[in-house]
Amino acid sequence: MFLINCPYCGERDQSEFSSGGEAHIERPKQPTELSDDEWADFLFMRKNIKGVQFERWNHSHGCRKWFNLIRDTSNDKIHGIYKMGEKPPKV
């Protein structure tokens, strides 16, 4: 149970949040132009790495805002939190 510093509300318990998987996977603007493989890549392929990962999180039992979070999946250390649309900080 880690602590997450919501960029809108401040530090809260992990139980208030839900994870939304890998970050920075943008929905294609013109899906119909894509081949099956390209679309499948967007739809299904996720890195799920051991180590530092960029993730989407939602303060679902708080302000309901989505934001990005950089987490080391091997030890749950959080290396950075930034709002949607912002550039990720260097880690």
Binding site: E26, W66, M84, G85
Partner: peptide, 13 residues
């Protein structure tokens, strides 16, 4: 509701 919020906040701000 949370799915729609997700699209509004992240894909179509």
């Amino acid at each position: 509701l949370s799915k729609l919020e997700d699209y509004l906040q992240t894909e179509w701000p």
